[in-house]
């Protein structure tokens, strides 16, 4: 068996007993034949110390629970190969959101921004008996948008979101805003653009592109934001 010791530095904070957060050195035996992903190792660490707290669920990169800051970069623990990690592996909670405990952050602000873009199809027309028609090409416009898993890797890597989390919608919210603008079945494009035409909500994006760099689903919020800006320009002239 190809086992070896892996070293970690993990952000720890339990408001019930700790006065301040601290970084804890931890180590664990890893079997490289069995363990592929960082989440496998976190499970091993938790078996040693059950107080280590983090969110996780599907373990296959589709539920978006286990986003964290891994060696300085946001990512999903379940999709991060351990063989690629420099040691000691430094694990911190997602930056820019309040920490509740250890690697668990309070995501209220993130979801508030998502909810603010009215993330649902708006079509007040009479409901047809069958499905609304949409050509394969029209449907293709939603690719690269609908796959968002709301893990918050992007928004919490965005300096603009760090400074104005209450006013800037952030890359995840804006990607989802464009998902509905791009949907031929949605009738609220103008209202959606009105809502975003604001110095903060949309225009705090300065194309830093950290969001693109970290998205575990390889989506491109910057491009979606660019398309929203383009539509605004186009309707202005």
């Amino acid at each position: 068996m190809a086992t070896s010791t892996m070293l970690f530095k993990i952000y720890r904070y339990d408001p019930d007993k700790d006065e301040a957060p601290y970084m804890q050195d931890m180590s664990v035996e890893v079997d490289f034949a069995l363990d592929r992903k960082l989440l496998d190792i976190l499970t091993r660490l938790k078996a040693i110390d059950d107080t280590l707290s983090y969110r996780r669920s599907c373990r296959e990169g589709i539920c978006g629970s286990d986003a964290m800051n891994i060696n300085g970069k946001n990512g999903l623990a379940c999709l991060t190969d351990i063989s690629e990690l420099k040691q000691p592996v430094v694990l911190r909670p997602l930056p820019g959101l309040p920490v509740i405990r250890d690697l668990i952050v309070d995501m209220t602000q993130f979801f508030k921004q998502y909810h603010s873009i009215k993330p649902y199809l708006i079509n007040e027309g009479p409901r047809p008996e069958r499905e609304r028609l949409q050509s394969p090409e029209e449907r293709d416009e939603l690719n690269g948008l609908y796959e968002c898993i709301l893990c918050a890797c992007c928004s919490t890597s965005c300096p603009s979101f760090w400074w104005n989390p209450d006013k800037f919608v952030g890359p995840a919210g804006l990607l989802n805003a464009y998902r509905f603008i791009a949907d031929t079945r949605d009738q609220a494009t103008n209202e959606r653009l009105d809502d975003l035409e604001d110095p903060y909500r949309l225009f705090r994006c300065h194309s830093i592109m950290n969001c693109v760099d970290v998205c575990p689903k390889n989506l491109n919020p910057t491009q979606a934001i660019g398309k929203i800006k383009e539509l605004m320009v186009r309707r202005a002239i």
Binding site: R130, E131, S135, P136, R139, D186
Partner: peptide, 17 residues
């Protein structure tokens, strides 16, 4: 069909169904 009306992004046939 109701789910499609809710906004579900189903893939489409050439006729748009």
């Amino acid at each position: 069909v109701e789910l499609e009306h809710f906004g579900m992004p189903f893939d489409r046939t050439d006729e748009g169904k």
